[in-house]
Write a protein that binds this DNA or RNA. Sequence first.
DNA 1: AACGGCTCGC
DNA 2: CTGCGAGCCGTTC
Length: 491
Amino acid sequence: MGSLMIENIQAAPKGDPEIEVLIGKGKNQVTIDQIDTERVGHYAAEDADITLRLHQTLWPKLESEDSLAKLFQTLEVPLVPVLSRLERNGVRVDSEMLSRQSQELAIGMHELEQQAHGSAGHSFNLGSPKQIGEIFFNELKLPVISKTPKGAPSTAESVLVELADQGHELPALILEHRGLSKLKSTYTDKLPGMVDPDTGRVHTSYHQAVAATGRLSSSDPNLQNIPIRTEAGRRIRQAFVAEPGWKMVAADYSQIELRIMAHLSEDKGLLSAFAAGEDIHRATAAEVFAESLDEVTPEQRRSAKAINFGLIYGMSAFGLAKQLGIGRGAAQEYVDLYFERYPGVREFMDRTRKEAHEKGYVQTLFGRRLYLPDINSRNHQRRTAAERTAINAPMQGTAADIIKRAMLAVDDWIQTDKPPARPLMQVHDELVLEVQADYLDVACESLRRHMESAAELAVPLVVGLGVGDHNRLCHLAIGQFFIWTAHDGHP
DNA sequence: AACGGCTCGC
DNA sequence: CTGCGAGCCGTTC
C-alpha cells in the first residue's frame, strides 16, 4: 500500500534524516530508523499516530518565517494522517468492466492500424512519432506546423488536428489511434493489476512535497488524471464504483482559481460578478465584447473562457491567438479590452511580477512561498517563464491551501461524528467520497459546508455536488451534467 | 536507465 | 511565446 511518508523519508539521507517520521504513541513510539521502510504503510494501516519532525537544516529555515512555520504546523503536518487514511480507504474498481474495455479498444486500434497502413502505403509503428514524422514530412510532404523543443517536426495533437482539418486522412487516423492507445495502456490494461488483493481496491499514493505550488500529486496509480474529456474516456470512470448500498459523491470548487484572482486583485468588476453568482465566463464575455449578458453567443463565451484561463496561466496575447485560432492583433485587442474592464486584475499582475523580481519569491494567501531563481535571469526565455509561474503560483497555490484546509475539516467531521462516509480521492479542486445511500443528503450538506467554509474570501466559495449514477463515478465532475443544488442540499 | 515526445487530468 | 503534475511508448546510450 502506498504511503506518503515513504516518499519523504527516501528523500532524506540515511543516518542523518532531515525529516523524521514517528509512528505510535509514548513507549510504543518508533522512529523511521527503527523500522523497515517497506513496512511504514503497514504501521500506518494500524492507525497509529503519525508525527512528522524536521531536523537541523529545514526547521531553522521554516522557523525564521512565521507564516511558513504556521503553514507547516497547522496545515501540512495535520494533513499527514488524513492522507494516510485517504490512501488506505482506496477506491473500488470494476476490473471486469475494464478488461472488456481493453478488448474493445484493441479491436478499434487494430482497425485504425490497418487503415493507417493502407493510407501510408506500407506498414509502420503508429506509436512512433519518429516514423510518423518520416512519413508526414518526407514521404507525403505535409507542411510542418510546429517543432518540438529539440527541433524535430512535431506530430503533437494540435498538429494532427490542423492537418486533419486540411483534409488529410492519415493524421486523423493516427489521432484516433493515439487516443485509444493512451486509454488502453494507462488505464484499462493497468488498473486491474493495481487492485490490492487484500482490500479489492486500488490504493494511490499522495505526495505532499512534489508540486512546487503546494498541490498534491498522485501516483501508482495516478488518480488525478482519470479521463473525462472524451466519450471513451468517460467510460473508464464508470469502472470506479461504490460498494453496494453506497454512492459516489464528488464535490468540486466552482472556478476556485478565478475566485482567488478576484480576492487577491480586489477588482470591482470581478468581485461583483462573483457576488451576483454570475456565470463568470459569460460575464467576462459580456464585458469584453460589449454585449448584455443575455446576448453573449456560445462563441463569445468560449473566447472569454480562453481569456480567463490564459490569465491564470500568465499567457500572452500571442498564446491567446494560438489558442483561439485568431490573429495576434485581434488577441491583443481582447486582452487590452479585458484589462480596461478589469483594471484591478492588471494591477494585481503588475504587483505580483514586481514582488517576484524584488523578493525572489511569490506567496499564497496563507503565506506558502515559491522561490523563483530564474526571475532575474538574463536569459529571456527563462525569465519570462519564471514570470508566468509568478502569476500562476499564488492562485494555484492558494487553491491548494484551501482544499487542504477543507480536507482537514472533512476529516475532523468524519473522525468525530463517524458518519457512514469515506473520503476516497482529492483531484486538486475536488473531493470524492463514498457515502452510504441512506445518508446521502446529510453527508452532501456537511461536505458542502466544510468545503465552502474552508476559507473566508471576498467572494463566496461555491461547491458543486455530483452523485454517481448507479453507484458509478461516470457522471461526476462534468459541470454541464451536474444537477446543481442551490444551497439546500437536494438535487 | 535516461530522455524525448506525447497525452491524460486540474 | 499558458501554469502544475504522472505515465506511457519509442529511442538512444
